[in-house]
Design a protein around this nucleic acid. Structure first.
Lengths: 118, 118
DNA sequence: CAGTATCCCTGTAGATACTG
DNA sequence: CAGTATCTACAGGGATACTG
């Protein structure tokens, strides 16, 4: 990303999930494999263009698998790869941090705050 | 972030580190507290404007402390808050994921890849 | 030293229309 | 159904100059 971050795998991870909708997509596919149309419904605000685009990138990064069924009309199913699933797992720690931060925001540090992570 | 992500603390975490230079800054401050000028040197490509701006946001999010010393010339020291330090810790899992992903990219999954996270 | 103010440029994403 | 194509808008960020 930047010279200072070259050595850090975090940059790579961040790069993979940058993009306005990737986390949503990853999150949704984390629940189950989904068809294109179903993803659109799950993420109402996204446009077809953006969904397609973000899916291409996730696929290129090896986070998502794209399976085409030769049917009429067309049927395409997206699912998480091993790597994509692992990303979701790795993200859990940050997720907990975010929730803790949210609680702190509501109830600001009473005196000297306890470490957010136990 | 988006309707679908409302319930996830991950969105909050991501929001806090979005911005082209925040990870660099967090990373640098993770090593030690730093003055404005020192941060600039550590992150050569960043402009004064961006450094100031990103620091303001990190401060507003409670990740960074700003300490002003009444000296001449001015002296300002930035350091991680507890919360900021906790974020760095929480990010470690993603960091490991990124490194694993990088290795996989170099040596693609031989047969059926082992789970990236042990 | 530690910033602010300004102007400009680019990329990212939204809207819309069309296709295999 | 599952996309692509095009055109536009806007915000994030870069360069530069100035200030307490």
């Amino acid at each position: 990303m930047n010279p200072t971050m070259e050595n850090c795998g975090f940059a790579a991870a961040l790069k993979a999930i940058e993009g306005k909708w990737k986390v949503d997509i990853l999150c949704e596919l984390g629940r189950a494999a989904r068809r294109f149309g179903r993803l659109r419904q799950s993420i109402p605000a996204i446009s077809e263009k953006m969904l397609a685009q973000q899916l291409r990138e996730l696929e290129a990064d090896g986070l998502v698998d794209r399976t085409v069924y030769a049917e009429q009309p067309a049927k395409v199913v997206y699912s998480l790869t091993e790597r994509g699933a692992a990303l979701n797992v790795a993200a859990a720690a940050l997720c907990r941090w975010g929730e803790a931060a949210r609680r702190d925001a509501v109830r600001p540090p009473t005196a000297a705050a306890d470490p957010v992570v136990a």
